[in-house]
Design a protein around this nucleic acid. Sequence first.
DNA 1: GCAGGTCTTCGAAGCGCTTCGACGCGAAGG
DNA 2: CCTTCGCGTCGAAGCGCTTCGAAGACCTGC
Lengths: 333, 333
Amino acid sequence: MRTVTIADVAKHAGVAVSTVSYVLSGKRAISATTRQRVLDSVRALGYHPNAGARALASKRAKVIALVLPLRAGMNLPVLMQFATSVVTTARQYDHDVLLMTADEGADGLHRVAASALVDGLLLMDVEIHDPRVPLLRKLAEPSVLIGFPADPEGLTCVDLDFARAGALCADHLADLGHREIALLGAPRVVYERGTGFAERTMAGFVEAARRHGLEADARPCEESFDEVHAAVKLLLDERPALSGLVVHNEAAAGHVLGALRILGRRVPEDVSVVAICPDDIAERASPALTSVLIPAEDVGRQAVRLLMAKLEGQAVPESTLLEPRLTIRESSR
Amino acid sequence: MRTVTIADVAKHAGVAVSTVSYVLSGKRAISATTRQRVLDSVRALGYHPNAGARALASKRAKVIALVLPLRAGMNLPVLMQFATSVVTTARQYDHDVLLMTADEGADGLHRVAASALVDGLLLMDVEIHDPRVPLLRKLAEPSVLIGFPADPEGLTCVDLDFARAGALCADHLADLGHREIALLGAPRVVYERGTGFAERTMAGFVEAARRHGLEADARPCEESFDEVHAAVKLLLDERPALSGLVVHNEAAAGHVLGALRILGRRVPEDVSVVAICPDDIAERASPALTSVLIPAEDVGRQAVRLLMAKLEGQAVPESTLLEPRLTIRESSR
DNA sequence: GCAGGTCTTCGAAGCGCTTCGACGCGAAGG
DNA sequence: CCTTCGCGTCGAAGCGCTTCGAAGACCTGC
């Protein structure tokens, strides 16, 4: 069973090859009757355009690259959610997704771009001083970044508005009447890497707390139960009146609840806890966590849309910040 | 800056286009001097073969599809590990990876195969009665499955030997002198879906325990703290002498430790716990969990190797079971 | 000295698709 | 009635690469 080509379809429908092509692409008007005849033949023969030939002739591969970081400190569930939403959205635009890992580095990006394997690039978890950014500026292929490098000039970046997320938590606790609050953040290594989002959350939190006139401080937090336990204990020892806790660390969120339980503090009666984490984690915890979710799906969808717009040659904003959303559950009052 | 083609390289090196092609593919002998001249030109011009043209002419896209499930019950970290190892291994064979989600279904597989977008398929999390399996049998493109459908006849399947994994846990606990043990498995929905691996673990565990003459039982286990807590409590109430617990559920593993802590059982003094989970989860728990790891990396690497072998036309075994490995940590004695 | 090999390299024919220019034809305009 | 135009369709020229057959150069051995 030889694979069926556009010529087979043309013959079957009794038209020229180019006519079939125009029916399929819609780039020229074709009479309704001819169009239908062609479409019927396509169906009858089970025709699928050859991707390579199409790419060669049209200079469009209809594939985008998705570059995922694969490193400690990343939240896997969020990453998967993101990847899924990218794939799903890309398919809506009739594109496929080539998966790459960050360890291929700038060379890898250059390779897939230069070989015309992909039409555009989507990079996740861009760092403040990312070595790939200069390359992206140079590349003919459009790209969209998740996260912000130091200088987003000339790039297209999407991210959750982490500063707003931090602020939202502080606002929520302030509204509930808490006077002393704190934020437990990502592991120290994340701040050292300068990924940006962690600092921005802290900054937003501290700034909002200050605006409300609250006692607040923010510190990194490791992910093992013991370290979380120690951190929470230290915090409570230092500031006995602390009644509001924000956790921006998915892995630690559950442990914080466990530690409070062991330390004899009830949630939310004694301490209100707000997490910045995916909904599934917040819901699974007990008590269910009031949380600001990282809208991985939105980010992915939005990133693909921007990329598609750029592929069409449209102008897009350099920076897109997605509004965080607070969901109130059982852990705060 | 027009993109450089093989013709540019040929001109620059003063040879025929075909000569350049043969240098690059190594499919015909080329004299050392000519080869070097060509290679120099390639470097000088920064030539990257056009993927579409290459695919069209050679009928090989050098791309494989990776089909990931995106469903509840899957362990995300393992999945990512797996995806990473697939991408990395594929790159070693000079192939790229197209990411697909299971929700594209059989049609999606047919599409990418028929359009010659990919040369082969890698499916994860195949179910006992997977609707995609009949298609795979029919497809000209080779495929490799992770997991086993009911009838693996004519397919190529790879998986951890879950039965051995379950048995290994029982063996370990038996060796330590425990007489009453139990296994807490995946959420009920996983068994209902008939994915296979969960049952096989249970079966291996029960069988090995019986062989050792131990009291053993095995039951599903949900993932929220409260449900885990309840399950553990029930287990302990029913069988006060229980001293060995196997957890085959990454999400629940940490909660089991928390529940035991609350129920006043020390680990490992009162109860030994063994988990079947990725190493990172086992190490992060406190106490660190003795565990049988799911060798996601091995599985990915092996799957890609098999697929590459099939692409070369080599015969490969229908079934490949990867040996589990037990790592003893603090949670068992 | 020449048929027959071997070793390198070349030229050209596609691979399956898109796209540009052109053509035929009936309708509209003068 | 003849020109002009627009619509629908066709043919052919690539897109950049692989691969097959063959040619040229040089050796061998009889």
